[in-house]
């Protein structure tokens, strides 16, 4: 037990250190700006004493370490500064846009896991056969196509040419402002509001970006499932189960797969983190009002507070998911102390 506590303390302290490092990196990115924020605030022709005064007001005359500690204090209090573009506090903006990204990433993860894991198991069982090769090619292709290219092609073919799915955006103008945000996840909010039409509309809008993101991340899930399963199927307990006369399906899903499931938790956590990155590009193409579009909009306009904060947020989620995967792994697998 003590060794368990010790290793947990070690993990947690390394996470804290990493988070501190993250904040240092984002702080420095925010300071190395192409334009001097003081000049931007007071204009080119401001007299020298105004510049000095504003610089002091903004705290930019302090040593970098003091500035950093100040920034860290603000971040810990949930204060990410103001966005020049939206005139809102960045924290408010992010709270508004983040659920949309969460919805996209979660939908994609569920779909990718639902298809990717069985595909991986199938490929492992039929290792080296034609099915295995086909699955491999399909997955590698999914991993090779840039999300923005696939998204544009999908808009062109599925939306413009075939008219099978609605166009960019998160919901039809018809339902605009009709649904009161509760969770911020439209697919859940519309159900809570009991509006089936709006729910179907939300799902239809989600379909294209979710399927594309899912295809992109499926490759990793399938590959890892296959590798883990191949190892598991070599186990002596599998041979014993086969010798005892169990059916193939029973051996694969009842005996081998449960041993793989624990390892897959880590894979899914990492995939989820990767989906946040994919969402940035996909949201730009589909005009999806999420964190990614917020970030790229701010980037185009040199609005640094949102850029820095969104980067810090995504980094923190990344670290958090890794920690979660690590802890779950320890919890689920009795062999790890």
């Amino acid at each position: 037990m003590t060794s368990r506590v010790k290793s947990l303390t070690k993990i947690l302290s390394s996470v804290v250190l990493t988070l501190l490092g993250l904040s240092i990196v984002t702080f420095l990115i925010g300071r190395v700006m192409p334009v001097d924020p003081v000049i931007a605030a007071v204009g080119d022709n401001a007299p020298e004493e105004v510049i000095v005064r504003v610089r002091a007001e903004m705290g930019l005359d302090q040593p970098l370490v003091v500035q950093y500690l100040h920034y860290l204090g603000q971040v810990l209090h949930g204060d990410f500064g103001m966005s020049v573009l939206t005139k809102n506090p960045v924290a408010v903006d992010i709270a508004r846009v983040f659920p949309a990204t969460l919805e996209l990433a979660t939908g994609a993860l569920l779909l990718a896991a639902l298809i990717g894991i069985p595909l991986g198991v199938w490929a492992a069982v039929r290792q080296g056969r034609l099915v295995d090769q086909i699955i491999r090619i399909v997955c590698l292709a999914g991993h090779s196509v840039p999300v923005f290219v696939l998204s544009l092609l999908s808009l062109l073919i599925v939306y413009a040419k075939l008219g099978l799915a609605p166009g960019p955006g998160r919901q039809d103008i018809l339902y605009d402002g009709m649904i009161t945000p509760v969770t911020g996840l439209l697919s859940i909010d519309t159900l809570l509001a009991g509006d089936l039409g709006a729910f179907c509309d939300a799902l239809a809008h989600m379909a294209q970006p979710v399927i594309i993101l899912a295809y992109f991340s499926m490759a990793y899930i399938t590959r890892m499932t296959r590798a883990f399963m191949i190892d598991a199927l070599k186990g002596e307990y599998v041979i014993t189960a086969r010798a005892a006369g169990l059916t193939g399906t029973r051996v694969v899903w009842g005996h081998a797969f449960p041993n793989v499931a624990v390892q897959l938790v880590t894979v899914l956590a990492l995939t989820y983190a990767g989906l946040l990155e994919g969402a940035v590009v996909s949201e730009t193409v589909f005009s999806w009002p999420g964190l990614g579009r917020y970030l790229t909009n701010a980037l185009m306009n040199g609005d640094m507070n949102p850029v820095v904060s969104a980067t810090l947020l995504i980094g923190t989620i990344y670290v958090g998911l890794n920690l979660l995967a690590d802890l779950l792994y320890r919890l689920l697998d009795p062999r790890v102390t």
Binding site: G21, T26, I29, L276, E277, V280, T296, L299, V319
Partner: peptide, 22 residues
């Protein structure tokens, strides 16, 4: 530790932030 910090960002996001700063 330094490596872990840089591994903690998704590649595209960090690259975007860096380019924005430059």
């Amino acid at each position: 530790r330094l490596t872990d910090i840089f591994l903690a960002f998704p590649r595209l996001i960090l690259a975007l932030a860096f380019v924005a700063a430059m």
